[in-house]
Amino acid sequence: MYIYIYDIYVSEKKYESTIARIETRITDLGLNGKIIRLSVMSSLFETIKNELKKGAKTITVVGNDSILNQAITVIAKLLPANGAFKNVPLGFIPVGKKNNSLANFLGLELEENACDALSARRIKYINLGIANNNHFLTHATIPTTGTILEIDKTYTIEISEPGEIGIVNLLKDEALDNNSGAKNQKGILELSIKTKTAKKYLPLIKEYGERSVFSFKNLTVINKKLPITLDNSLEIPSPINISLAEEKLNIIVGKNHQF
């Protein structure tokens, strides 16, 4: 059975017509299934766990980056208990433009237009990053200010300029022409540090701005004041240990996915 789990905010009145269009499209495509509307009292973990036990064929979350990130962590945590769960792909219907940046990486259009990707059922079996106990799909970010990095317990990195640190699992970086997807297949994640100044000292990469890149298997991030943000949605405090998760996930993507 197809399971559709609606985030709390999509029950707001302003999304009424959007949800109606999504449900019509789902019906037209013959993808009807059970709809579960989350409330403040609901547990996404228990909801997904129960539906997987009942034999769900596809779990689709309807909402934004936040519920997608949560669903990924929930399914990844349930996988060790039952290996058969890995055969259940995770689908995503992004609703609203706010906080919905991951849809683009997955090649999904917004709202009812994402339903076509569910129908096409293009499934990618992908690696996940893990930061402490929380999984992430694409990337994690933290400001450079006050941040100390230790890679594979062999060297540390200090950054003297303000900027942003990105830990990349699946994220195409046009400037570097990197292939993080290929890297993470080897058990490696990528650390990208962007700073705002000192560009003039780096003629070799002038056209891309000031940027540093490292590859790692294990990274420790310490920042006494600022949290790290996973998948643009979940903030967790340091110290944070980041690596590639043992669990992999089947996820439904659009044809224009960026990894």
Binding site: T156, E158, S160, T195, L202, I205, R211, S212, V213, S215
Partner: peptide, 12 residues
Amino acid sequence: ETVIGPSIKVKG
């Protein structure tokens, strides 16, 4: 594979 920019100091 690795780029260490001018504002970066690596120890180890």
